[in-house]
Each structure stands twice: as structure tokens, then as C-alpha cells.
């Protein structure tokens, strides 16, 4: 029933990297649809080979390291960003029998730990670039990601309390009766916002903010190192969607269709939602972003924990 571990790791990695590449085209096409224009539709059927064309182009670009940069850290930073996202997928259970470490008893904490490590990719990129815009971008990233990590951690605590476990597989199994999105609607909303801020996607892409910072933390990056940041961002979108599915939307559970297909369907629907957010919402100011976090999301997530705890205590047997 369970496939051997190297096969699972290999297939997961291949699907993820393929998906992240494909998403670069898919997002632009979807944005085009919503904004009443075409988007990239020339290369291959429907433009699907655009991702391949972009990949080939980016591989043959000159990979330039600025002479004023800190070489070692400059090369390390995109790798950290990519690695932490990929490692987080290790604990996401796709189905009951298909996951790398879905039964790890500190699974959810591992995801939070890797998100915490992901900050270094962005921060070090900005520092190693040794240029003003990059530094400003990475300072924003550090403040934003650390702040939203707090709310992300607090918002999932409701789920942990209801499931009684940090194990991702147990959390999915605990949702066989009712998906956690119903009792934990508040936590789910906070987690979604924190997830967008954590992957610094639009509308919370202040670390990149091209109208004020050039390209933010990756201003000095070129070639495949920039490509790595780019892919890590899309892999991050898939990760946050997969986490939302696992924590709040019942994971692989669903009628009729096979479990893996349910997981894929739910995840891709959420990815489309992320793209829709980008198409629909303007970017807030930086202070507005921080105020939203500390003045609204923090009290809300604390309230969610207190209410969940109280209800669980009232319904506790004995």
C-alpha cells in the first residue's frame, strides 16, 4: 500500500518543481482572464510552453554576482529560501498512505520552524546584495514575516486544540466528521492572511514593492538565482494552499473521487484564490500592513484560542 520512501520523495519533488514552474504561466494566464486580456498565449497550445521558454531564457542569462556583494551569502540566500519551502512539504500528508513524514509527532511545529527559517533567505539576500533598495526590502521582509509568523502560529493553535495533536495526519483524520473551517473560521481567516504575508505575495508583497524599491530584496539577483526566488515564491503559494487544505479543509477526505485527487482539487482551487487576490486587491501601505497584523489579527487569534479552549472545556467528558 505504502510506496517506498525514495519514490515518494522523488515524485513529490518532481511534482512540486514542475508545478511551481507551470504556475508562473498559469498565474499570468489567469490574471489575463480576470483582467479581460489574453496573457501569454503564443508558445504551445494555449501558451502552456511559455514556462519552458522562460526557463530556457533564464538559464542562458548571464548569472552576475555584483562585485560589491558578499559572495558566499549571496549564493546561499536563494538556496535557503527554496530549501525551507521544499522541506515543509515533507510533513504534508497528501493521502493517508502518501506522505514523507506526515506522522511526525511535531509536524505542524516543523512547518512553523521552516517558515521561520525561510525569513533568512530574504533577509540575507538583501544584506548580501549590499545595496540600498535590497536592504530596505529585506528589512521590511524581516519585520513583516516575523510579525505574521506570530499570528500564523497562534491561529493554528485552535486546530491543534480540537485535534489534540501536532501530527498532520491526525489533524486530517480528526476532520472526518466536520471540516475545521467551520468551527475554526476565524483561525482559518487569520491563517490565510498570515500565509499570504509569509510568502510575501500580493497584496502583501511589500518586501518587493516595485513602485518604491526597484525589486526589493532580489534587486541585484539575475539568472537562475533570481529564478530560484521566483520558483520558491510559487512553491510557497502551493505550500500555504496545501497547509490550508490539510488544516482546515479536511485534507484528502471527500466523497467518490480518490483521496489524492481531492487533495489536488482543493489545493488548486486555493491556488486560484491566491491569484484572484493578486488580481483584485490593491497593495496596502507598509504601516497599514503592520497595524492590521498587531491591532486586528493578534487580538482575533487570541480570542479564537480562548473561545476554542472554553468550548472544548465545556464539552469535555466528565
Amino acid at each position: 500500500m505504502t510506496a517506498p520512501m525514495p519514490v515518494i520523495i522523488g515524485v513529490t519533488l518532481a511534482i512540486l518543481l514542475g508545478l511551481a514552474t507551470f504556475l508562473t504561466w498559469f498565474e499570468r494566464r489567469l490574471l489575463g482572464l480576470w483582467q479581460d486580456r489574453y496573457g501569454p498565449n503564443r508558445v504551445g497550445p494555449g501558451g502552456i510552453l511559455q514556462a519552458v521558454a522562460d526557463g530556457i531564457k533564464i538559464l542562458f542569462k548571464q548569472d552576475w554576482i555584483p562585485p560589491f556583494a558578499d559572495r558566499g551569502v549571496f549564493v546561499l540566500a536563494p538556496a535557503i529560501g527554496m530549501m525551507t519551502v521544499l522541506l515543509s512539504f515533507g510533513v504534508v500528508p497528501v493521502t493517508a498512505f502518501w506522505s514523507i513524514a506526515g506522522t511526525l509527532n511535531v509536524g505542524l511545529l516543523f512547518v512553523l520552524a521552516m517558515m521561520g527559517m525561510g525569513v533568512y533567505g530574504v533577509v540575507l539576500a538583501g544584506w548580501a546584495s549590499n545595496s540600498k533598495y535590497a536592504l530596505l526590502g529585506s528589512m521590511r521582509a524581516a519585520a513583516q514575516m516575523i510579525s505574521y509568523e506570530v499570528f500564523m502560529g497562534l491561529s493554528v493553535l485552535g486546530v491543534v486544540m480540537q485535534a489534540g495533536s501536532f501530527t498532520m495526519r491526525d489533524i486530517v483524520l480528526a476532520q472526518s466528521g466536520l471540516w475545521f473551517v467551520v468551527p475554526q473560521a476565524l483561525g482559518c481567516a487569520v491563517f490565510t492572511l498570515a500565509g499570504i504575508a509569509e510568502t510575501h505575495r500580493l497584496p502583501f508583497d511589500l518586501p518587493e514593492g516595485e513602485n518604491e524599491l526597484g525589486a526589493g530584496f532580489h534587486t541585484e539577483y539575475s539568472g537562475m538565482k533570481f529564478g530560484m526566488f521566483f520558483l520558491a515564491e510559487y512553491a510557497g503559494v502551493v505550500l500555504v494552499s496545501a497547509l490550508l487544505v490539510t488544516l482546515y479543509l479536511g485534507g484528502w477526505e471527500g466523497p467518490l473521487l480518490p483521496p489524492a485527487l481531492w487533495f489536488a482539487l482543493k489545493t488548486s482551487a486555493l491556488v486560484c484564490l491566491f491569484v484572484l487576490l493578486r488580481a483584485a486587491l490593491p497593495r496596502p501601505r507598509y504601516d497599514q500592513l503592520m497595524a492590521l497584523g498587531w491591532k486586528i489579527l493578534l487580538p482575533l487569534s487570541l480570542l479564537n484560542i480562548a473561545a476554542t479552549g472554553a468550548i472544548l472545556l465545556l464539552h469535555a467528558p466528565g
Binding site: G116, Y120, V123, W127, M139
Partner: peptide, 8 residues
């Protein structure tokens, strides 16, 4: 991260 932030 805060340490790195301050040093930056």
C-alpha cells in the same frame, strides 16, 4: 533574525 536585523 532580530540579531541579524539589528546588525543590518
Amino acid at each position: 533574525v532580530l540579531f541579524v536585523f539589528v546588525v543590518m
